[in-house]
Amino acid sequence: MTDVLLETRDLALAYGAFRAVDGVSLRIARGSIHTVIGPNGAGKTSLFHCLTGERRPTAGRILLDGREITREPPHGRVGLGMSRSFQVTSLFQELSVHENLRLAAQGIDGWRALNFWQRLNKRREHLARADEILERIGLAERAGVAAGELSHGQQRILEVGMAICPRPKLLLLDEPTSGMGIDDIPSMTSLIGELGEDHSILLIEHNMSIVMSISDTITVMNRGQVLVEGDPETVRSDARVRDAYLGEAA
């Protein structure tokens, strides 16, 4: 039996009569890159919202490392080892790149972040973590620049960089390449691939070439339910998957 990091059991999210997520049971293995794909309206984003805590599921449970987190608020999930990125870039635009990362590292402090008397440079671990991530995502040159002044591609990279600052057990990435130019996509692909070496990742992504090249497991969703699950090869050759996507195209 594989070591399961995140598990959902019959997860459902309904908006009135419409069931956006309809009984989804996922098992994400520790150390894997697990991707959720599906045509528009398949319920990927609704599922993601349940996992991040933005929406409370109408039924079902979410377990992280065997611990029930179904009703945990978004900020509470960080301390438990879950961290996320946003589909629409969500940075602290007026603050420097370094400060964005430092704040991301400091978030793990929970109550201790309420300390109003300590000087910032006393928390060396957060400064060091920000420096480390700056190197890792290749933005060290731009440390002092306001995040809003970065190019779109760099902002997307910073977006992911902020998500890894708290050293999460599970990294939730919501369409990391969304809106990226064709030239920037390879750098994001290699970054996610590298992160996969020391993180467990749940990825929602539209770009098929990325999905097929870096995923260990792929879950295909359609109409709020799991259609197919398996490794890239299985999914690629599955007739139902083609139908679902062709149905969208038609």
Binding site: G76, S83, G107, D109, A113, M162, C165
Partner: peptide, 8 residues
């Protein structure tokens, strides 16, 4: 974003 980073 602040909330997603763990701040209440």
């Amino acid at each position: 974003r602040a909330s997603a980073l763990g701040y209440d």
